[in-house]
């Protein structure tokens, strides 16, 4: 229950534990006197509990997307990015250099800001991750694709046109397709980077409903610019500012009685 989470730093049962996380990005052409690196995250400690929705809020450039991308090591794809500290998934260190990143991303899925359907059929889009992991048995694929589309609340809309191109879907449908694609590989954690920022209000409402349902089965970390959305979908909220984690607690506490004045200023719309 939400009330039980009064100690904000740790969730009910730790899924992900982040300790002393620093992230640096290389500055392409540093000016004189400017350091060659930009620190995007400074000593962040944060836990994510099982089956909870954790919302990350904060002004643009505060490091919340960077934090999200560390959790499935998508920052590896950014040239010149450097990560220090510790992130554990079920107690296992995922920042270790030899850690199986491909396996990690299978357990920790991600949905991006802009819905990206591959230029393939709807079926092939959802089956993409499964096939990438070597599943080729046709009936198994069909079953799993149907399951994933059903869980993403898209099955009824597309069941008659699974062969149609994924690019033909509307924005909201495409985003749910991306969620279905991520769910198909049965991740334990789903990271969402402003998943509704490209959607209209109705599609947004549908997606938020979906997030509430998915919470029963997996852990969700969602970056959002909308305070209302954080309030609607999350159990806990973390407020980032200038690369630091300012405050984390139950969503109700953070929004109604924030401990930090900066949190209050941001939430009440004084900046950001």
């Amino acid at each position: 229950m939400i009330e039980d989470l009064s100690n904000g730093t740790t969730g009910p049962r730790g899924k992900l534990a982040v300790r002393g996380l620093d992230v640096f990005y290389r500055v392409e052409k540093p000016k004189k006197g400017q350091p060659g690196e930009n620190q995007a995250l400074k000593a962040v400690d944060l836990d994510v509990g099982v089956n909870e929705v954790l919302a990350l809020i904060g002004p643009s450039g505060c490091g919340k997307s960077t934090f999200l991308r560390v959790l499935n090591r998508m920052n590896d794809t950014v040239p010149g990015a450097r990560v220090a500290g510790s992130v554990t998934l079920d107690g296992e260190e995922i920042l270790a250099p030899k850690y199986d990143v491909v396996g990690l991303r299978r357990r920790v899925g991600m949905v991006f800001q802009r819905p990206v359907a591959f230029p393939k059929s709807i079926f092939d889009n959802v089956a993409y991750g499964l096939r990438a992991h070597g599943l080729s048995e046709k009936r198994e694929l069909e079953w799993r694709v149907q399951q994933a589309l059903t869980r993403a609340a898209l099955w009824d809309e597309v069941k008659d046109r699974l062969d149609a191109n994924g690019l033909g879907l509307s924005g909201g449908q495409a985003q749910r397709l991306c969620i279905a694609r991520a769910l198909a590989v049965e991740p334990e954690v789903l990271l969402m980077d402003e998943p509704t920022s490209a959607l209209d209000p109705i599609a947004t409402a549908k997606l938020e409903e979906l997030i509430a349902e998915l919470r029963e089965e997996l852990t969700i970390v969602i970056v959002t610019h909308s305070m209302q959305q954080a309030g609607r979908v999350s159990q806990r909220t973390a407020f980032f500012y200038m690369g630091s984690l300012v405050e984390v607690g139950t969503t109700r506490d953070v929004f109604t009685r924030p401990r930090e004045p900066r949190t209050e200023d941001y939430i009440s719309g004084r900046f950001g």
């Binding site: 499935n72 998508m74 794809t77 990206v116 096939r131 990438a132």
Partner: peptide
């Protein structure tokens, strides 16, 4: 670049991403 990121985030290897996406 979004295609590549989306594919990698699904746990596809770099080679799979190049060949299939």
């Amino acid at each position: 670049r979004d295609y590549v990121d989306a594919s990698l985030a699904l746990g596809a290897t770099k080679m799979h991403t190049i060949l299939r996406v």
